[in-house]
């Protein structure tokens, strides 16, 4: 099949706030329900300042590691886990999701949450991953993590909070810049 050239992305701009957020957008599970955890973090710019106009999406398998293909993310019934959520950061740059710890999609694989990041001033969306901090063996064997030097690798691994939740900060630029992913390189190299 002939390859078509992809349409370019553009910044999400400053005014997504009345369009993209929706009721319970960040609640993949009802807060307080069995197995639910809080995933939180702060989005920073290259000056180290928290930014108030970023919006994140997460997409993850369920606690058993199954990829869910169920509708209902936009009109949540409070019971159906769809695996996808969206959270705009608040004035202090903090985002919060209620979700479950993702399970490994294959035996021995390191579980992670896939993330897409959008912001005013960010020309195109960025992709990254949030790995759970447990299971050192799986993390060490992970193809992506093992291809990174230790300092950069740590930007993709969440901290476990005392209440069982996860904290993971995102840095768009700077010394501790989050690792962002490119899924296209191999394909374009083969053209």
């Amino acid at each position: 099949m002939s390859k078509l050239i992809p349409t370019p992305g553009q910044t999400v701009g400053p005014f997504y706030g009345y369009a993209l957020p929706f009721n319970k957008d960040n609640e993949l599970l009802a807060p307080g329900s069995a197995g639910s955890i809080r995933l939180q973090g702060t989005v920073y710019d290259g000056a180290g300042d928290a930014i108030p106009d970023a919006i994140l999406e997460i997409w993850q398998p369920d606690a058993e590691g199954k990829v869910v293909q169920r509708t209902g993310s936009l009109v949540r019934d409070g019971y159906t886990f769809t695996g996808w959520g969206r959270a705009a950061v608040g004035h202090s740059g903090v985002f919060t999701f209620t979700t479950v710890n993702p399970g490994p999609t294959e035996a021995g694989a390191a579980p992670f949450i896939s993330v897409a990041v959008f912001a005013r001033g960010l020309m195109n969306r960025l992709f990254t991953r949030i790995y759970l901090p447990e299971n050192e063996e799986a993390l060490a064997a992970d193809p992506l993590l093992s291809s990174l030097d230790p300092e950069r690798r740590s930007t993709l691994i969440a901290r476990r909070d005392a209440d069982g939740g996860l904290t993971w900060d995102l840095r768009l630029q700077g010394g501790n810049e989050t690792v962002f992913l490119d899924f296209e390189r191999v394909e374009s190299a083969s053209q």
């Binding site: 000056a47 300042d49 960025l126 630029q173 810049e177 962002f180 490119d182 899924f183 390189r185």
Partner: peptide, 10 residues
């Protein structure tokens, strides 16, 4: 201040 300075990681 909002673009990554390191190249995207494959």
């Amino acid at each position: 201040l909002r673009h990554p300075t390191k190249s995207l990681h494959h």
